[in-house]
Design a protein around this nucleic acid. Structure first.
Lengths: 197, 197
DNA sequence: TTGCGACGTTAACAAAAGATAATTTCAAGA
DNA sequence: TCTTGAAATTATCTTTTGTTAACGTCGCAA
């Protein structure tokens, strides 16, 4: 099933919009391809991009004061990704979005989407769905930070997203868990030696 | 300015809806008062509540497997609060929302709001605003967990929300920062002795 | 006034994480 | 095939946090 098919089905399920009636929306979308390690959104960039990932993994990260990188989140095929600083806070992005693998996505400018929604309110549930999804995921991660130790967070990530952990370098996983790569390596060792007993 | 005035102004600023045209919305809202320590939403509850806090502070927390509490977030006057498990995930709430002070809020059932939005799409920007706000805040907290140490998170909280820190018992602040009350006490001591040098 | 209980602080020790550097592993490119 | 460089592991040491328990403080109620 193509990306547009997927999104048309989503729009039908959410709002009963027939695929034939989605032309005004998809006419304004652009397919984008990214190579491995290519930046999708750069620091300081002001474009407001919302995209649906068809394939590949994107990492959103920021540069800390000391120069280190901190990974905020990872997004992969079947998910939406958005330059949240520009869309929500209307400020130049402090985050960099970069492809970890070859990525294909379907993109729309958020400002254009807002214009379309003014004349086509029937698409509104789609925006709502996207915001709810992002919020649910953010809250879930936040919950894991206040309820779990780094080791518990890693174990949960392994059990829920084993495929993802195997596709993404450990150092990015570590930083998303809020720890250093050295610590993650020690956690892995602890887990391995414990399970062997 | 009353709560309804505040929200009417918000709706006008967001969507150009005149205060006189907000009757269908506010007819479905209910003012609620909570005493100190009273639960607003209990664990396992399924009601889908969205509310605007007129005064007071509410704490959202969950009970960990070991029985300890973990505070996810604090909300105070001028903010929206929502039973996110029931609204977003459509599952009984794993979280408890409890007043830390006497609280006054204006409440609406989320299902009722959805019905109103079907016939009054002009209110839609309000839902959108609320979701954006919550998402912005969640992402900001998430960012602090991946970029900052507990001490840095506490310093930032002090500088941005000094009033809040002084209204809320330290143990809840600690748990929101992802650390124990003992650790927060040590951080405070470190900060104090450092600044005296 | 006294006593109780919750809260914050302190102490002592164990466990985990950070910082730094050396070493190993491994895949991509010359 | 060989080389190079990034990633992961390991080691060492320091710092921070967790755990548990004791202690002091303060407000509230008996």
């Amino acid at each position: 099933m193509s990306t547009i098919d997927t999104l048309q089905k989503l729009l039908f399920d959410l709002a009963g919009v027939l695929p034939a009636d989605t032309e005004p929306l998809f006419a304004m979308t652009t397919p984008v391809s990214l190579e491995t390690n290519e930046a999708y959104i750069r620091e300081g960039e002001s474009s407001r991009r919302l995209a649906f990932i068809e394939s590949g993994v994107i990492r959103a990260y920021t540069i800390k004061e000391n120069g280190d990188e901190a990974t905020l989140l990872l997004r992969w095929e079947g998910q939406f990704i958005a330059s949240h600083d520009t869309i929500i806070n209307r400020q130049p992005s402090r985050f960099i979005y970069r492809a970890l693998e070859p990525v294909k996505l379907l993109q729309i400018d958020y400002g254009v989407l807002e214009e379309i929604l003014k004349t086509h309110p029937e698409y509104e549930p789609l925006r709502n769905f996207f915001l709810m999804k992002m919020l649910a995921e953010s809250l879930k991660m936040l919950e894991s930070f206040v309820t779990q130790s780094p080791e518990e967070r890693y174990r949960e990530l392994l059990s829920e997203r084993f495929d993802l952990v195997n596709r993404v370098p450990d150092k990015y996983i570590a930083s998303m868990l809020g720890i250093t790569p050295v610590s993650l390596s020690r956690i892995r060792k602890r887990m391995y030696t414990k399970s062997k007993q």
